[in-house]
Design a protein around this nucleic acid. Structure first.
Lengths: 239, 239
DNA sequence: TATTGCAATATTGTCGACAATCTGATTTTC
DNA sequence: GAAAATCAGATTGTCGACAATATTGCAATA
């Protein structure tokens, strides 16, 4: 090994750029659920041809945040209360597993990173940009997946995270307040540093349940409003 | 609602066609791990332009069975023993959850389908085409996911299944025998019809463990042989 | 009036060609 | 002779144009 370790060069292809732009737009709620993505318009706005845009969209379809109907269009996924419930229940299962796997890997570096991310969460609560709060909270949460030494699990969770981030952003956008539960992180971090693995698992189960409670009821409200103007199943065409 | 319910029209786009062709080729082992996919060659063989082919490849990259390096190429994923172990451990976790979710949904229709798939497995053992055995076994196994009423879980499992199918196919291709454990399915089906959910979960944990044991040791062998000629990290170039 | 048929338009799917990048061999330089 | 520079070939990434398909509005019809 050489004296210094270098990170791999960033792959700078238009496609990758487009992916992150689109993803950001979707996860922050700038592109609303159900909205159609007009290829020509977007490619013109981005000053890019449709080829890399379409490839990027294929990726996001497979990632689960877009859905495509041949010859009809590609749309941001709709969000139902059941979607959120499902994400929640799967998240519970994965969390428990991730904690189990990460448990023996908690080195000093781990704890340092844990503190760093926890601080970032607390910092974000002071900022104006509410989406930062979601982002930092999810990053704190993701630590147990990154240290699980289980790429497949990490990948699975990241896919799930995309949806979670979208749900939280939607909620935040509708009401103008962040999802509650901020001091819970204190307990979470403290438990992760402790010796009782089961306690962390229990805590993850319960504390996250709180956040979701709010989300689900929010989604139910959304659905009822949607159901009201459902007949016709309109598709929005803007951007 | 009309008198009869119609299924949606099949979407027949070249891209979708290509996806299933490529996927089949990879999952049956016709395309080997590490192998590079030459876009021009494949597009000519399929009599298709590179655009839909590339889009199809993007999907499979996201699906996790291809990996792409910008300006270098797209390759079939390599298979390490750890990959298989990880797939196995995640599968265990998901199985337990799927069984729990499916448990209350076991209607008569479920049992009928269970028997049908079990029969298909037994049928496949008689056939020459060994890949059918893998396919039917995985389909039997997938039933608990299809009946879990949890699209996200199903999606997650299907992604996992792609890998599993690939692993089994690799094993089968190297040695010329199927993975053992055929009568285990008898117990599995019987338990699924019973009243003890925990028993099914336990059984899933243990019986699947057997299959994987063989796979992992097989992969270890592969790795050692690869390690021997590793220096240079050669990439195969044939189709 | 509701439904069907048809034309016009918009949008997605696909193609062939060009540009950017990598790879490997050859030449140059020390 | 070995390392660096250069160049040709091959391959991937991107582009603009065309083909296939869906949608919309209006007229025709019962």
């Amino acid at each position: 090994m050489s004296a210094t370790d270098f990170d791999p060069i960033v792959d700078t292809t238009r496609r990758a750029e487009i992916v992150s732009l689109l993803k950001r737009a979707i996860l922050t709620g700038k592109l609303e659920p159900g909205q159609k993505l007009n290829e020509l318009r977007i490619s013109e706005q981005m000053r890019v041809s449709r080829a890399p845009l379409r490839e990027a969209m294929r990726e996001l379809v497979q990632e689960g945040i877009l859905t495509s109907i041949p010859y009809a269009g590609t749309f941001v996924i709709e969000v139902t209360a059941k979607d959120i419930e499902d994400s929640y229940s799967l998240n519970q299962v994965l969390d428990e597993f991730a904690i189990e796997r990460t448990w023996p890997n908690r080195t000093e570096v781990f704890f340092a990173e844990l503190d760093r991310r926890h601080a970032a969460v607390k910092q974000a609560t002071l900022e104006i940009d509410t989406s930062r709060q979601i982002e930092t909270a999810l990053q704190l949460h993701g630590l147990i997946y990154e240290w699980a030494d289980h790429p497949l699990l990490l990948d699975t969770w990241q896919r799930l995270t995309s949806r979670l981030q979208m749900y939280f952003a939607l909620h935040q956008r509708a009401r103008n307040e962040p999802v509650p539960s901020l001091d819970v992180h204190e307990d979470y971090v403290r438990l992760l540093k402790g010796k009782d693995m089961k306690a962390v698992q229990r805590h993850a189960r319960e504390h996250i349940a709180l956040d979701f409670e709010e989300l689900v009821s929010f989604a139910r409200g959304l659905e009822e409003r949607q159901a009201g103007r459902k007949p016709g199943s309109r598709k929005r065409t803007e951007n």
